[in-house]
Design a protein around this nucleic acid. Structure first.
Length: 495
DNA sequence: CTAGGGTTAG
């Protein structure tokens, strides 16, 4: 039965089950898990409900079924109803949250597991929790787990090593990621890809390429995701011709068919560098239908290089694919406004409202005391709001003395409109940085995460702040890391 | 025998 399920023949598996004269709980469990893992949750639940005698395996298999179908709430409901649990049940539920982007819930459940369950975490627990840490940038918890692994003598196996290295890379600690990489006994394509992509998001293209070639020398074949890392290294460093060279090699040298994601990367690479004709030609010659992301990458270039005609054309393509694409409306409205075509701008905003399009709200977060503190733009809900805002005004006056002038007028067209926060509000990363300054010791590094891209104004401001408070400030935005130190940023203002 | 795990552009 299990074999038939694994090869995708659920019906044959079920026929076998029907023909069996003696069935025990294991036979039933095979059915539940077979349907769960093949994606048929309804069938799995049907069998689950028919079972009179359930085991721990039955419950866990059903929970995993819901997790894979994206229904975490149903999974949690079952988890809460279970008559007894073991480590695997806890891990299944923690994985369920981590795999469905509910990272904070995964971490909460992990603490609950430690407090109430009596089960010690194992490597699988940590792989999932570290993945949540990586997404949230929760470095303190990540470090705590690293220490726990070392103290408990837990073996740093392939999965655990990969999860740990990725957590460090995604928290901006490349040296530590590299150290984990060095300690690992076994490395696979994912291990290498983690380091290659980590270097890429830090703008360290040369080292990213070096690791790529080292990987080849070790006899490890790159996969699609490795090339995403390589292409993003080229994008973040502005290495256009290098990127095109790698892109051509994906198929010709490595025998991998380029995916739409690869095309998206290259369109982004060309667009950011101002090679908009080539970017548009590439889109028109793609073997697959371009999606909103691919067009959006070109729109980003039209915005930077103020190519209005092309921009309008691109927006129409995007709105045909997704009439709710907020970035396109805001982009068009701003282009019209800048040309003095105020009526066109207004009707564009109206069209946006009529279609019920909402902008993605920008927010930033910072980890402190094992808690993630979130800030929206202009947020006043944090208990330390008074201190935070007075810190910001103190910073602003010191910045003024340092000769810094915010360019609120120009900022309108300097960032991707979808990703830009309201110019008049205090941007979320400033709140997070101020919170960090208040709550951490002098001289320590401040690490802030953000769901959108950093805007030019905040980028300039953060450079100055790093100098006047003499702190290293690391901002992880939607696509890369910015290490601000002594008035400069590691991205060299190209991002 | 049957349940839990890592990398992906904008």
């Amino acid at each position: 039965m299990d074999m038939y399920f694994k090869f995708g023949f659920a019906e044959i598996a079920h026929e076998l089950f029907d023909e069996m004269t003696v069935r025990d709980v294991v036979s039933w469990n095979t059915l539940v898990s077979g349907y769960s893992l093949s994606g048929d949750v309804e069938m799995a639940r049907g069998v689950f409900d028919m079972m009179v005698e359930k085991s721990l395996v039955t419950w866990s298999a059903m929970i995993t079924g819901y997790v894979r179908s994206g229904n975490v709430d149903a999974a949690r409901e079952l988890f809460d109803k279970m008559p007894e649990r073991n480590v695997i049940s806890w891990n299944a539920m923690i994985a369920g949250y981590a795999q469905n982007e509910k990272y904070a819930d995964a971490i909460d459940l992990f603490w609950q597991m430690l407090r109430v369950s009596g089960f010690g975490p194992n490597d699988v627990t940590f792989v999932n929790v570290l993945s949540a840490c990586a997404h949230l940038g929760a470095l303190d918890l990540g470090k705590w787990i690293d220490q726990y692994i070392k103290k408990s003598g837990m073996e740093l196996n392939l999965f655990l090593g990969n999860a740990l290295a990725d957590m460090f890379a995604k928290c901006g600690c490349l040296a530590e990621a590299q150290q984990v990489f060095d300690e690992m006994q076994e490395r696979d394509v994912i291990t290498w890809t983690i380091i290659i992509s980590g270097l890429a998001t830090h703008g360290r293209a040369k080292e990213s390429f070096d690791h790529f070639y080292d990987m080849l020398e070790c006899g490890i074949k790159p996969n699609e995701i490795t090339f995403m890392g390589i292409l993003s290294a080229c994008t973040h460093a502005g290495l256009v011709d290098e990127g095109l060279k790698f892109f051509n090699q994906i198929d010709k040298v490595y025998g991998i068919s380029p995916t739409i994601e690869h095309y998206g990367c290259v369109v982004d690479l060309l667009s950011r560098a101002g090679r908009l004709n080539e970017a548009e030609d590439l889109i028109n010659s793609m073997p697959m239908k371009p999606n909103v992301i691919v067009w959006g990458a070109l729109l980003g270039g039209c915005r930077i290089y103020k190519d209005v005609d092309r921009g309008e054309r691109v927006v129409e393509h995007i709105l045909k694919l997704d009439s709710g694409h907020s970035g396109s409306y805001v982009y068009l409205a701003n282009v019209y406004a800048s040309m003095g075509r105020l009526n066109a701008a207004a009707s564009c905003r109206l069209r946006m409202r009529e279609n019920g399009v909402a902008k993605t709200p920008g927010y930033s977060w910072i980890e402190h005391g094992h808690t993630v503190h979130e800030f929206f733009m202009g947020d006043r809900s944090h208990p330390q709001t008074e201190q935070i805002y007075s810190m910001i005004s103190e910073l602003e006056s010191r910045m003024k003395l340092a000769g810094y002038r915010p360019n609120t007028g120009l900022v309108v067209h300097s960032v991707d409109e979808e990703e830009k926060e309201d110019v008049l509000s205090t941007h979320s990363e400033k709140l997070a940085i101020a919170f960090g300054l208040i709550n951490t010791r002098d001289g320590t590094t401040i690490r802030v995460m953000k769901n959108l891209r950093v805007c030019t104004d905040c980028h300039e401001a953060t450079k100055v702040i790093s100098k006047i408070v003499n702190r290293e400030i690391i901002v992880r935005d939607r696509s890369r890391f910015h290490h601000f130190k002594d008035g400069q940023c590691s991205c060299n203002d190209y991002w």
